[in-house]
Computed example of a mutant assay.
Amino acid sequence: MSVVPAVQDAVIRVADAYARPPERPDLFGELSTALQQGVPFDASAWFATDPHSLLPSAPGRVENLPASGWTSYWEAEFNDQDVLLFRDLAHSRVTADSLLRATDRNPERSPRYRGALTVAGFSDELRAVFRAGSVVWGVVSLLRGSSQPAFSPADCAVLQTAGPSIAAALRAQVAWTRPVSLHSPGLGTALFSPTGGLVALDAGATAWFHEIEGSHAGAPERRTGMATVDAVVAHANAVGNERARGPSFTRLRTQWGCWSVLSASPSRTPQGERGLTSLVIDRARPSQVAELLIEANCLTARERHIVQEIAHGYSNDEIGRRLGLSPNTVRDHLSSVFDKVRVTTRGELVALLFSERVFPSSP
């Protein structure tokens, strides 16, 4: 067996193991180790993504990348003039490709290459999105320096083929969450300049940054949590500069298991000039976490409607009348929902999907 099929199989085995309980802590670390055996790289950035905004979430893993380059890296991601953007791969038949191939071996066409990548000494980038059906659950950026050859079509094919398995593993990490009561920081607000620099933050934001990054919050070497903050702020700044659309938010499960929502919005001065960008961090509302869990557990449209009716307290007979279904059909759909989310009663279902806190399940 050649190296590429062997490493592809190894990556898929890692992903498949993480798609089954119990939950394990280092999916991206094991994927990175397996991939290096046949697709070597000098640096990498792996992120789970919010399936609704495609912005980075958690878990995340960054290897051999300088913290100072994240702002310009994400600014380039939201630049319509750049190539090989994650959002384009998300809607493409090709889910993994290299920068040199995408630019016909003229990487200077890419603002990302001219900025963050060149400054850090990289000559090629392989990007992939991890998509299950039409939903993206994660992304990766692999980077090689000038001493390495360009990424080959075979290298890209490894992640193209393994992508659905990795997406299934990331989706499973969300699907296995369970409600537990636990303290979390209150509402926090931080202000950023139009270029992404931190200007001010309150006590709540300070607490959340520590929650996101642990004891490393505020240290010179920022890790994956602050890269997520950079991405949300960069998207909001791009919206303010009319280079991007849509909400600038992501839902993030912190290292202690607390689900939070990071949401940013740009402002303008009374004279119409760009003002500061506000980042608000707070615990996720039950409905915001429920959206993720419903998506992660692959509920059908009909099953989602029935779950919503159950949350409002309707009986099977009432749900049937409201949705034009027989009681037996409602029971069949409800049985399917119970199997998918691994509960046995209506009370457990409502507690799981609409509780005040949602945390990882016990092994």
Rank of each mutant, 00 (worst) to 15 (best):
F130W: 03
R321K: 13
T189Q: 12
A154N: 05
E77G: 09
S361M: 09
G133A: 11
N297M: 10
N297V: 07
T277C: 15
R93E: 14
L99Y: 06
R24Q: 14
I310D: 00
A58D: 15
P247V: 04
L276E: 08
A167I: 01
A311M: 06
A290L: 02
V62G: 01
H91R: 15
T344I: 03
W259V: 05
S184F: 00
T118D: 12
A6W: 07
P266F: 12
A96M: 12
R331I: 12
D42K: 10
E221D: 13
A154S: 13
V119R: 12
D124I: 07
A17I: 08
G197L: 06
G163K: 01
L27V: 08
P51R: 05
L85A: 07
R144M: 10
S32L: 06
W46V: 09
A45F: 01
A231D: 07
R171Q: 14
S57Q: 04
F47K: 00
F86G: 13
F122E: 10
T71M: 15
R285Q: 14
L170F: 05
M226S: 03
R222Q: 15
E318Y: 08
A157D: 14
G115D: 11
R109A: 08
P247W: 00
S152V: 02
L27Y: 11
V232M: 13
F209G: 04
Y314A: 13
A203L: 11
S141D: 14
S193Y: 11
V158T: 01
S2P: 15
V239C: 12
S215V: 15
A217G: 00
T49H: 09
I294V: 15
G246L: 15
F78C: 01
A58P: 03
P59K: 04
E211A: 12
R322K: 12
W176F: 05
N297E: 11
V199G: 10
C298S: 14
F151S: 06
T344F: 04
L55P: 07
G225F: 07
A96T: 06
L142D: 05
V83I: 09
V330F: 11
A284Y: 04
E309S: 07
A10V: 02
L100A: 08
L323W: 00
L187I: 13
S193T: 05
S53M: 13
R222P: 11
R112C: 00
V261N: 03
S152I: 00
V136R: 11
I166S: 00
S315C: 01
V261L: 14
V140F: 05
Q36A: 13
K340N: 10
W176N: 01
L126S: 06
A231V: 05
P360A: 09
H305T: 12
T195H: 15
V129L: 12
Q148D: 10
L85P: 02
P66S: 08
E273C: 06
E309R: 04
W176Y: 02
V119P: 07
G38C: 03
Y113K: 11
S68Y: 11
V180K: 11
D202R: 07
A236K: 04
A296W: 04
A311D: 07
F28D: 06
I281Y: 01
L126W: 08
S146G: 03
S44V: 00
